[in-house]
Design a protein around this nucleic acid. Structure first.
Length: 494
RNA sequence: GCCCCCAUCGUCUAGUGGCCCAGGACGGAGCCCUCUCAAGGCUCAAACAGGGGUUCGAGUCCCCUUGGGGGCACCA
């Protein structure tokens, strides 16, 4: 595989929330960089001041950190090729735009938005295949154009796209992408506000920052020929291009819409990384999940970040769109939870329990964690599975204290007998409590299901819980017996 | 409308001309284990979009159709 250190970059614009697609691009960027001993860079593409969303930058960086994909170079951490925020690099773009104009590969355009609008309408009325700039300013005398620029006339800089021939751009996954130049346009490189468009800014920055591999969404495929033409006009070396496909909604029909996003949230899921933590997902699970949407590993498997780095191969990325499957998220999250050492898991569970209002002491939490580990899909599942350990009393539903096929009287008798057996025991370890209780079940001609079911409700207050005897051990003799006593009283009053 | 991309089980995918009457994972069904719920083990159902080529031989190469996706801004 490729041993040359790769410099990769993730270049989001702070115009919205950080979602799964961005996270996946970041992951692949990160994996490639780590795999080859290179660097992963975060660059903020904030050249569209109209769409700038306050707080978006913070969310991007917070999400990356949470996932464990902290960039080696970024606006926050700096680096040798900064600044890493495009609005802080204006002079650089100006310089390169000038270079292109001097080379004759770009030109100033003085057309007003109104004139362009009118031009577009006319072309649409003529039903042309492709609405494109008519080249009015392209035909201007360069010296005259330069004079008008110097005099301060408002203008943009356009790229001079060849009118004929084809552009061949190469994508690592998709091969050569051939486009007839007549379908291309004289795209704007520099806006009249003095800021560059993505097309110029990204190419300049990737070159300046020595990016070797560009991984980006397939929405860039249509302007891909423009980008390689810009690079070639400069005479620069091209990076390796990889256009990743988009994520589709779970049904596989189209992209996630606002409506789908809301629905996902209602179901306890989200496509935004920043929501994942509070939903009880852990970064290991999320990472494993998104890694496999668009990466064909021979054996689908549960992998840590380290294992992903080891197995990553940029050539095994897939070009086809992938439908989001939240059930798979649950699967990977549960799998990674089961992989966590007790202490680590306990630490992560604690805030969920605390936020739910339980007074959590670490000693009990450490004993409880192994009991609930394989039952958790998300961390907040700890609330129903472990909440009763931290309560003084439980409130069993009277009807649930009666086992199937029995009445209140019989159930009360069972709890009384159990109480006597347990109270007489020297300790409350499950090794001590379970055998005599099983013997009792046998003697009484009952089933374990009936007896343990009643006791479970009496002791935990719920029908579903971790194993009974282990649970009683953690709860302790005193509290367990008190809860049994309370259950007897409830049953007797029925 | 025009341009571009994509196409294997419901979903994510393995497969780079013979090893494939297509393998794995999620989900589904069943069985085992079992004090509930899980976890775990075993088994089953489930796909090469359609049509033409090329070839001794095609899921794998080419073309068309169909379907899906993306794009046609002084947004990224």
């Amino acid at each position: 595989m490729n041993h040359k250190p790769a410099r990769t970059r993730m270049a989001p614009s702070p115009t919205g929330r950080f979602h799964l697609g961005s996270a996946r691009t970041a992951l692949y960027d990160f994996l490639l960089a780590r795999k080859t001993g290179g660097q992963f860079i975060l660059r903020l593409e904030d050249t569209d001041q109209k769409r700038y969303v306050p707080g978006a930058e913070e969310e991007i960086m917070r999400s990356l950190d949470w996932l464990g994909l902290t960039p080696d170079e970024s606006p926050l951490h700096g680096g040798p090729y900064g600044p890493y925020r495009q609005t802080e690099r204006r002079e650089i773009y100006h310089h390169y735009a000038k270079v292109l104009v001097e080379k004759g590969a770009a030109y100033p355009c003085f057309c007003t938005p109104e004139r362009l609008e009118q031009m577009r309408k006319e072309q649409e009325a003529r039903k042309v295949d492709k609405v494109r700039y008519d080249g009015t300013c392209r035909r201007l005398d360069p010296d005259e154009a330069a004079r008008r620029v110097a005099s301060g006339e408002k203008h943009v800089i356009r790229f001079k796209m060849p009118y004929e021939g084809v552009t061949i751009a190469h994508d690592l996954l998709r091969g050569d992408i051939v486009t007839e130049n007549k379908y291309l346009d004289d795209y704007v490189l520099m806006k009249s506000d003095g800021l560059p468009t993505y097309h110029l800014a990204a190419m300049v920055d990737d070159h300046e920052m020595k990016i070797t591999h560009v991984l980006r969404g397939s929405e860039w495929l249509s302007t891909f020929p423009l980008h390689v033409n810009i690079i070639r006009a400069f005479g620069w070396e091209e990076p390796v291009w990889v256009h990743l496909s988009v994520f589709l909604k779970p049904s596989g029909k189209g992209k996630m819409s606002k409506r789908d996003t809301t629905q996902a949230l209602k179901d306890g899921y989200s496509i935004f990384v920043d929501d994942m933590k509070s939903l009880g997902y852990i970064p290991e699970g999320v990472l494993n999940w998104i890694a496999l949407m668009g990466w064909g590993v021979p054996e689908d498997d549960v992998m840590t970040l380290e294992q992903m780095i080891e197995r990553f191969d940029i050539r095994s990325l897939t070009p086809s769109p992938a439908a989001i499957n939240f059930q798979k998220l649950d699967h990977f999250n549960g799998a990674h939870i089961r992989l966590l050492p007790t202490e680590d898991l306990a630490r992560r569970i604690k805030p969920f329990l605390t936020d739910a209002g339980f007074a959590v002491d670490d000693e009990t939490l450490f004993k409880v964690t192994p009991l609930i580990r394989e039952r958790l899909v998300t961390l907040d599942d700890a609330i129903p599975f472990a909440g009763f350990f931290f309560k003084q009393d439980v409130e069993p539903k009277p009807e649930e204290l009666i086992a199937k096929g029995l009445d209140a009287k019989q159930s009360a008798e069972i709890v009384r007998s159990s109480y006597q057996i347990l109270a007489a025991l020297p300790d409350f370890s499950h090794q001590t409590t379970e055998p005599p209780m099983r013997a009792y079940v046998e003697r009484a001609g009952l089933t374990a299901n009936q007896v343990f079911g009643i006791l479970r409700v009496a002791v935990t207050g719920q029908k579903v819980s971790p194993p009974l005897f282990e649970s009683m051990e953690v709860i302790g003799r005193e509290k367990t017996l008190a809860r049994l006593q309370k259950a007897i009283e409830i049953l007797e009053s029925m």
